[in-house]
């Protein structure tokens, strides 16, 4: 029970480290079978907070009236529910699911083709391809030797958890396999949509300019690994590796980095090691 407002509710949640801010927490009450929520200020150092019980409706029924209902609902809650179902499935079948996000043309499909050809001998690899149009990438993956489903999103610029859920039902995911999900090339939207993946991998290529982490911080903030691809082109472009790493580490101090060339194979062993460590 909340000792200060006496609501009898235990499950109020506050988010904070010890300190000084007034947080708001929410209690749910039931009136006439209708659930209402209300909030009151909550100070996390002491509990001398003022009550603020505001119920914004009257209980005259039998006529049309307007009722305020507090939802406090995450707009992406539907996606998050399905994402958690996907995640549970992946965990139960020990599938390592990776969500690969990047700008268009960073080399995701090329990296996958090579990974399938090389690591695919040891570990079963399966791919879900997300593109607005065309089957091109799925055809490349199939040629490389992995089972693949292509999702064409039309105008949609990101995959969501339901799309992945539907796509994986068309694949026979083997136990202890790796599922690569190549998201639609776009550094903005996919960062908001959890697919239920085990890890999120953001890929940038050295031809893109080194201000990507500053321009698209959410993508770097939500990823666990950053691959810097096309290192074979480093001599020809103005791309400062250290500057990019420093900028990305500012928004996400836990981010790991692997520099590689999907074309020449330089650095690929480090990527395979990263995968095998997570897979085992």
């Amino acid at each position: 029970m909340c000792g200060t407002c006496g609501c009898g509710e235990d499950d109020h949640i506050t988010y904070r480290i010890p300190g000084e801010v007034n947080l708001t927490h929410v209690h749910t009450h039931t009136h006439d079978g209708l659930t209402h929520s209300h909030e009151h200020a909550h100070h996390h150092h002491d509990h001398n907070h003022p009550e603020a019980h505001q119920h914004t409706h009257e209980h005259e029924h039998g006529h049309s009236h307007t009722h305020t209902v507090t939802l406090e609902q995450n707009i992406l809650s539907k996606n998050e529910l399905i994402a958690e179902r996907n995640r549970g499935y992946f965990e139960g079948s020990q599938v390592l699911a990776l969500n690969l996000v990047s700008s268009p043309g960073s080399g995701k499909t090329t990296l996958l083709e090579r990974t399938i050809a090389e690591l695919g001998k040891k570990i079963d690899c399966t791919v879900i391809e997300g593109d607005q149009q065309t089957m091109n990438d799925a055809e490349r993956i199939q040629k490389a030797g992995a089972p693949v489903v292509q999702i064409n999103t039309g105008n949609g610029c990101h995959l969501d958890a339901l799309m992945v859920n539907k796509a994986m039902k068309q694949l026979e995911l083997k136990r202890k396999s790796i599922l690569f999900i190549e998201n639609v090339g776009n550094l903005v939207c996919p960062s908001l949509f959890d697919l239920g993946e085990s890890r999120r991998v953001v890929i940038i290529s050295v031809t893109e300019g080194d201000d990507k982490p500053a321009k698209y911080p959410t993508m770097f903030e939500t990823a666990q690994l950053c691959i810097i691809n096309k290192t074979d082109l480093l001599p020809y472009v103005d791309f400062d590796l250290d500057k990019v790493k420093a900028a990305a580490a500012r928004v996400n101090p836990r981010l790991e980095f692997i520099s590689l060339s999907a074309k020449t194979g330089e650095g690929l062993q480090e990527w395979y090691n990263w995968l095998q460590k997570l897979h085992s």
């Binding site: 009236h65 939802l71 707009i75």
Partner: peptide, 19 residues
């Protein structure tokens, strides 16, 4: 870290009912 700023929420809705 952040204590505010990541919100993406439907806070409340006003419903019109005939009862």
């Amino acid at each position: 870290s952040f204590i505010k700023g990541k919100e993406l929420k439907i806070k409340s809705i006003d419903l019109v009912t005939n009862d």
